[in-house]
Design a protein around this nucleic acid. Structure first.
Length: 675
DNA sequence: ATAGGGTTAG
């Protein structure tokens, strides 16, 4: 009774002729309907059975498990408590194991099975492979190893099911050595297509695409759609996008059709290639074969359009067939937020009934990258209200980034305290974020404490610490850190040298500056960029070495002349009361950055400084009529969670009189110290 | 005769 049509007619014939179906036939019928997606029909046959045996119960429970209705499956399971066998258990166990959020029920049920030995319920090879799959899903190597032990002890490790499950589990748990042990230690008869596929996936997870390929070509008769898909997604995940696409094409040439996994992988590739043309091609296929109901595929298409920056397409695909799909909405949120369209991102974010870490982080990063730290902190409060605490490293990094941006140390401290109290293990990125936050919030001592306590350090972390020292005038400490990092074998990058040069610039250390500039280009082969030049020119300007600054400027000629560099040079001229070059700079500067109001102000000030009033008037006139805005520099402080903001010569603050008299005293003190 | 397990996707 394999075909649905035959099953139907058999059933109707029996009803017409008044015969009752035998229990065996009914069982078959239940199974047939369930296999064909007819749950209600299966249930009806089951309900009308005059007599039921253990097969009947197992068949109907299995039907509910197939349809992810674990509640009903469990209800039936409880009803038959006297006539369960190991298959009843295994059926429900597999249901729990595959369902998100029911993992603990599966573990509980496995424990119950182990306790029931005397009643004729045993843990068998089916049970063990199901549990192995669960360990893989939870990436719990410890649990998986225990199960492996049980398997070996009970002789259940010598089947093809056991071998492929073990390979999969160890690979998911990043125990590649164990994967090889299982694979090499197994009889050839247990290595079938599935085990081969699991092995190819394991190689890909290791990043060893070569080995995956050579395995693919060994015993090619075993290759099926899954094998191809595994190889395609493996290549995509290891950055071999072009190869992945080629493989998808040759898969069809080998007579295998793309299935939903293939399409999802191809969409993934197209999204990282940001190819609108390919994206549309795949989209067409999806429309033709109707596979857009797959959540991976509909969100994949949306993701492609987002990555290509085509939010119109993304939006229309989303409205057509991604509307009620959590994945698609997440893709849209990620898309909008990566383009800085935070209002749109927020609208969809708020519409999500369930928010995973991916969307939360997309929002945090979006607000941070578009320089809206207030929103980051507001969102953080929402996050804490919902999840009760912040345990995700990425979320913390965003919050700390917001603190750095607005120089408010309190939220950062709170997170720090919390992670110290709970013994949270910080990763390198998080430590770096703390170092950066504490230095930017004015407490470089705390930054150094966090830095010193970190077990592992990388170049980025050193960069954060060195710039912290540089900004606080601890030049010797900055230089020392540079020595340390090279001693432990870390390679400094262009950021390291920006930090070092800015330490020199703040302290007017010409010799050291020149030394690091030379080390950077000659030892580390890093070609200087705008920021490096700016530091050096500023350094020369501050130390009255305008000749040196000019020499350096000549060297930059081949590089595109940058407004920031010219501005620094102009500043150097002003500091040295040199007026020769102002005219020359004016032409270049206004040519490059003529729509920036502050450039005109800067130039006008230079002319004023040397009393060239005609030129100054000229500049003022050029500026007028262009409706140019100048960004005012501003400064702010948080006192008792209250923001106080100041512009230049600002008297709008309620207590500005008191503030200015205090400022007067402080400045006086400082002048006396430096004098 | 009829029921349960292994490989690929944000």
């Amino acid at each position: 009774m394999n075909c649905l049509k035959y099953g139907f007619s058999h059933q109707t014939r029996c009803i017409k002729s008044g015969l009752t179906l035998t229990t065996v036939s009914s069982n078959q019928l239940v199974n047939l309907y369930s296999r064909n997606g007819l749950l209600q029909e299966a249930r009806k046959v089951f309900d009308e059975m005059p007599e039921r045996n253990v097969y009947s119960w197992n068949a109907v429970i299995s039907a509910y498990v197939k349809f992810n209705d674990l509640k009903e499956a469990l209800k039936l399971f409880r009803t038959v408590n006297s006539r369960r066998d190991v298959i009843t258990y295994n059926t429900l166990l597999a249901g729990f194991a595959k369902t998100d959020g029911c993992e603990s029920e599966a573990i509980e049920m496995f424990a119950e099975m182990q306790r029931k030995e005397e009643k004729g319920i045993w843990v068998d090879d089916f049970t063990l492979t199901t549990m192995l799959k669960l360990s893989a899903k939870l990436t719990n190597a410890f649990y998986g190893e225990q199960l492996h032990g049980v398997m070996v002890k009970t002789g259940n490790d010598a089947t093809k099911f056991a071998v492929s499950s073990l390979i999969h589990m160890y690979s998911k748990c990043e125990k590649f050595k164990e994967v090889c042990n299982v694979f090499n230690g197994s009889c050839v008869e247990f290595i079938d297509g599935v085990a081969k596929n699991a092995m190819i996936a394991a190689y890909c997870r290791e990043g060893d695409v070569e080995r995956a390929l050579s395995m693919f070509w060994r015993n090619p008769e075993l290759n099926n759609t899954v094998t191809w898909n595994t190889l395609i997604s493996g290549h995509a995940q290891n950055g071999f996008e072009e190869e992945a696409l080629k493989m998808a094409v040759s898969m069809e040439e080998n007579g295998l059709r793309w299935d939903e996994h293939t399409i999802a992988s191809v969409l993934n590739v197209v999204s990282s290639l940001k190819s609108l043309k390919l994206g549309k091609e795949v989209h067409c296929r999806v429309v033709k074969n109707g596979s857009y109901s797959n959540k991976f595929i509909s969100s994949g298409i949306i993701d492609v359009y987002c990555k290509c920056g085509d939010m119109k397409y993304a939006e229309s695909v989303y409205l057509l067939y991604g509307f009620s799909n959590l994945y698609s909405t997440s893709s849209m949120v990620v898309g909008y937020s990566s383009q800085g369209k935070m209002v749109e991102a927020r609208r969809l974010f708020d519409s999500l009934s369930e928010k995973n870490l991916v969307v939360w982080n997309a929002m945090f990063l979006g607000y941070l990258k578009s320089c809206q730290p207030d929103f980051v902190l507001e969102l953080a409060r929402e996050f804490i209200a919902k999840e009760s605490k912040v345990t995700d490293s990425l979320v913390m990094v965003s919050i700390l980034g917001a603190c750095s941006l607005q120089a408010s140390i309190e939220p950062g401290k709170e997170i720090h305290c919390h992670s110290l109290r709970t013994g949270f293990v910080m990763d390198k990125k998080l430590v770096t974020a703390f170092v950066d936050m504490y230095s930017k919030c004015g407490n470089v001592e705390y930054a150094a404490k966090v830095f010193d306590r970190s077990f592992e350090r990388d170049t980025v972390m050193y960069n954060a610490m060195i710039s912290g020292c540089a900004h606080h005038g601890h030049d010797q400490k900055a230089f020392q850190l540079f020595e340390n990092m090279t001693e432990v074998g870390l390679k400094p990058d262009e950021i390291t040298f920006i930090a070092l040069l800015s330490a020199c610039r703040h302290r007017g250390l010409v010799l050291e500056g020149e030394k690091y500039f030379k080390v950077m280009t000659e030892v580390y082969n890093i070609s200087p960029e705008v920021d490096h030049y700016t530091c050096m020119i500023d350094l020369y300007g501050k130390t009255n070495r305008l000749d040196k600054a000019m020499e350096l400027m000549k060297g930059i000629a081949q590089v595109e002349e940058d407004a920031v560099i010219l501005g620094a040079f102009l500043n150097a001229c002003n500091l040295n009361k040199n007026t020769e070059h102002v005219k020359e700079v004016e032409e270049k500067l206004l040519d490059i950055d003529g729509c920036n109001g502050s450039r005109y102000v800067h130039l006008a000030n230079s002319y004023a400084l040397c009393g060239k009033w005609d030129e100054m008037r000229h500049i003022r006139n050029r500026m007028r009529g262009k409706e140019l805005g100048k960004f005012y520099g501003c400064s702010w402080a948080y006192i008792d969670n209250q923001l106080h903001m100041f512009k230049s010569s600002d008297i709008s603050h309620l207590r500005s009189e008191a503030i200015y008299s205090m400022l007067h005293f402080v400045t006086k003190d400082l002048t006396e110290i430096t004098a």
